[in-house]
Amino acid sequence: MVASIVPQLVPAFYSLMYTTVLYGGLIVAFIGLIGIAMEKRDIQVLILTDIVGLAMLIIVAAVGTDLSEALILPGLVVELAEIMAISEILISHEMRKKDVHTSFTPIPLNIDMEIMTTAPNFIALLLIGYGVFLSGFTGGAVAGGGIVIYVLSRKVRGLPVVVLDGVGAISGISWCLWIIGFLFFFILPQYWLLSLFLAALGLLLKVASKIGLIGIMMREEYGRK
């Protein structure tokens, strides 16, 4: 019974498909990389690195074990974070290059979509609730998506810096929470349940708050007038 749940060796399907999938991943990576090699404009290269990241996911997933899935999960979130940081550097670089005296506040957007006034509250609530239930990286991403959409749809133009700092503080605290959880696993193994919850919820809070940050940064772009 037990042996049937988890096999000793990797199932035949994975080992049969491995070569195919790996080759596929290599092809995708090759296409993306050659595209980068041929591209000259900065922003285009940034978009193309996304493809390279996807190729990485394929190559890692091809192994087909629980470990490979555990390696994918954070990798995804990291990819996201790096794109975020680098795009920000690109923007600030271009701003520095231009004249300092021109105004850089985004052009206010004037759209009135029915869907944006009714749906987001519900969807965001649902997503956040579901994300909290899931916890961990996945939950963080889902809940973060909910927060983003909420912030995006509300009229929150001009949210103060303090809020950003607050979000940062939450994520810092949750980080500590979670490190404590991790250490508990090895120092006091008998409290594994407690450490499990510390870790899971810490990570959830951290990822969600960080992704929510994106929403706050977006509010200038899409916050309506």
Binding site: L57, L73, I83, I91, A141, G144, G145
Partner: peptide, 23 residues
């Protein structure tokens, strides 16, 4: 991983669009 991918794809798109429109 699929769940995470779907939700991060949206956010990556958002970031890229932000960069594009800002630039």
């Amino acid at each position: 991983a699929l769940l995470t991918l779907i939700s991060t794809t949206i956010i990556v798109t958002l970031i890229l669009f932000r960069a594009i429109s800002r630039l």
